[in-house]
């Protein structure tokens, strides 16, 4: 599908494009390199030069401090995974469903409903959090993962995205032909609509997973039992005392926290990279 370009300008364009992309790549990878390097250095080294590319020799010490301070990667990983997978699944599945309701059906309250969703999206979250955790304390949902997972069922941002994505790309005649074949609406949604939304779902799944994995405020307010701590809670524990922070271990902890997200991200990124996936879908 090549369009013939003038060679020289194409060359110049490529040089510029690559240079620009490489610059952005360096900027993007920089914090990860720092994290890895700092995970091998000791507190004093980090305090005097937080940004350095020369690894230290303190990896083992940092690891031991990390493990000695109640950082239990297996428990933390398990808890974070339950919360993040649970909330991502809820977020993606129900948001797509809601968007489907908004796009595919003509119902009276459709427009007001969409307006409400958008209005909710715009409320500053800092203060409404008081109401949320007060309620959770009232109904006794403390030390439970449910208040960290279930709110994702109503995720206005994702619904909005799914709706925007669906409007131009969901062909209604498919739904009709499926109906002619005798498929129920629920089945149509699960077996036809969901697969078609793959790139959009992958995109939002990444965002949702990252947000959920990194959340700290609500878990810290709602979870008090050590065995239920998530990874970011454990890292933040290392940070507890500003005067005596073990920075090397903090970076190591951060690194351990980031690795699972990176893996999840790389797994899902397939859908971002491969545009063809969409075209190839068949019901």
């Amino acid at each position: 599908m090549a369009v013939v370009n003038k060679k020289a300008s194409s060359y110049a364009f490529k040089i510029f494009a690559y240079a620009f992309c490489i610059l952005l790549t360096v900027l993007s990878l920089f914090p990860f390199v720092i994290m890895i390097v700092n995970a091998t250095r000791n507190t004093a080294e980090i305090q005097s030069h937080a940004v350095s590319f020369i690894p230290g020799h303190n990896f083992r010490t940092n690891w031991n401090i990390l493990m000695g301070r109640g950082f239990n990667p297996l428990d933390g990983f398990k808890n974070s995974l339950i919360v993040s997978v649970g909330s991502t699944a809820c977020n993606i599945y129900f948001s797509t469903m809601t968007a489907f309701a908004l796009v595919a059906y003509d119902w009276k309250l459709r427009k007001p409903f969409f307006t409400v969703i958008m209005a909710v999206l715009m409320i500053p979250a800092q203060v409404t959090s008081i109401g949320f955790y007060s309620l959770m304390y009232k109904i006794g949902w403390v030390n439970s993962f449910l208040p960290l997972i279930l709110p994702s069922i109503a995720a206005p941002t994702t619904v909005f995205f799914m709706r925007q994505y669906m409007i131009p790309s969901l062909p209604m005649e498919i739904l009709q032909s499926a109906r002619i074949d005798g498929a129920g609406e629920f089945r149509i949604f699960n077996q036809i609509v969901l697969p078609m939304m793959k790139p959009a779902m992958a995109t939002q799944a990444i965002f949702s997973f990252v947000t959920s994995w990194n959340q700290l405020f609500m878990p810290q307010i709602l979870i008090t039992r050590p065995e239920l701590r998530t990874m970011p809670m454990m890292v933040s524990l290392l940070n507890g005392d500003a005067y005596k922070t073990e920075y090397g271990s903090v970076y190591l902890g951060l690194l351990l926290t980031v690795v699972p997200i990176l893996i999840a991200y790389f797994l899902l990124s397939k859908y971002i990279i491969e545009g063809v996936a969409l075209g190839g879908v068949k019901g």
Binding site: M97, D106, R110, V159, S169, L170, P171, M172
Partner: peptide, 25 residues
Amino acid sequence: MKTKLKGISYSKYGYLFSIPFVVAF
């Protein structure tokens, strides 16, 4: 070419599919 149909007279499904969102919301 993608196409878009007017809503089908399945409007109750619109409500049905919005229930989880509304409850959580």
